[in-house]
Computed example of a mutant assay.
Amino acid sequence: MLSIFFQGMALGAALILPLGPQNALVLNQGVRRQYHLMTAGLCTLSDVVLICAGVFGGSALLTQSPLLLSLVTWGGVAFLLWYGWGALRAAFSANVALASEKAMQQGRWRIFATMMAVTWLNPHVYIDTFVVLGSLGGQLPAEARSWFALGSVSASLLWFFGLASLAAWLSPLLNTVKAQRIINALVGMMMWGIALKLALQALGMR
């Protein structure tokens, strides 16, 4: 069963490593050293729920409900545009230090809500967990599915906590005015780029 475990871990890692909204949020909170481990834990917990739902039969729900996928997609587009606008506004603010200070004052509940939106309003999350992992894991025998899901979950846990810890460790280098401008600009452009890609896919212009 170890081969199934490592197969799930390898596939989970391949899906989670590309920079996306979740990774950007964990990175940002790590640089600020603000509830970064909580953010990593919530991202991991969300992946546990989504991966298990996908591997143990939830993929049928998504494939049979185009309306649900459409609602999630456009909700995600709206949120990513809003989040990207906030990051770009902070990047080009006349007083980036003040903008960073305001960001640091975010309470844990606002960070929690942002993380939940970034995760659950991102249709790519459902495609990765329900369609890709679900279709592959769902073909395995019942006992092997558990090992496959455990491997995929382990990849998420190691990645999110590793990213949060590394960002916090590098915080003295990255938490400067110049670095914050660059990080916020990159995050803003990435969020808008993902939103545009999602919108084009939803409109059938792949």
Rank of each mutant, 00 (worst) to 15 (best):
M1N: 09
M1Y: 10
M1D: 09
L2Q: 07
S3M: 10
I4R: 03
F5W: 13
G8T: 11
L15T: 11
L15V: 13
L17Y: 11
P18H: 13
L19V: 15
G20P: 03
A24Y: 00
L25Y: 00
V26W: 04
G30C: 08
V31E: 01
V31N: 01
R32K: 14
R33S: 15
Q34W: 07
Y35M: 09
H36S: 14
M38W: 12
M38Q: 11
T39Q: 06
A40M: 08
G41I: 13
L42D: 06
L45I: 15
V49N: 00
V49E: 00
I51N: 01
I51K: 05
I51W: 03
C52E: 00
A53S: 06
A53F: 07
V55N: 03
F56P: 00
F56M: 02
A60R: 09
A60M: 06
A60Q: 05
L61F: 11
L61N: 00
L62R: 04
L62Y: 10
T63R: 10
T63V: 13
T63I: 09
P66I: 15
L67Q: 06
L68H: 02
L69T: 06
L71K: 12
W74F: 15
W74R: 15
G75H: 11
G75V: 09
G76I: 04
V77N: 06
A78L: 15
A78D: 08
F79C: 02
F79G: 01
L80R: 00
L80M: 14
L81G: 08
G84N: 03
W85T: 12
G86F: 03
A87R: 08
L88T: 07
L88I: 11
A91H: 03
S93M: 01
V96H: 02
A99K: 01
K102F: 02
A103Y: 02
M104L: 13
G107F: 08
R110N: 13
M115Y: 00
M115Q: 07
M115C: 13
M116W: 08
A117C: 07
V118S: 00
V118W: 00
V118L: 01
T119N: 12
T119G: 06
W120L: 15
N122G: 02
V125Q: 04
F130Y: 14
G137Q: 11
Q139G: 15
L140R: 12
P141D: 01
A142D: 05
A144V: 08
A144R: 14
A144D: 08
A144F: 06
R145C: 04
S146D: 02
W147P: 01
L150E: 01
L150N: 02
G151I: 04
A155P: 09
S156F: 02
S156H: 08
L157W: 11
W159L: 14
G162S: 10
S165D: 13
L166T: 15
L166V: 15
A167N: 12
S171Y: 09
P172M: 10
P172E: 10
L174W: 11
L174F: 11
T176L: 12
K178F: 09
Q180A: 10
Q180W: 11
Q180S: 13
R181E: 10
I182W: 10
I183H: 04
I183W: 10
N184D: 14
L186I: 08
G188T: 09
G188W: 02
M189F: 14
M190N: 05
M191D: 01
W192E: 03
W192P: 01
L196K: 08
A199R: 05
A199L: 14
Q201G: 02
L203K: 06
L203N: 03
G204S: 05
G204T: 04
R206S: 12
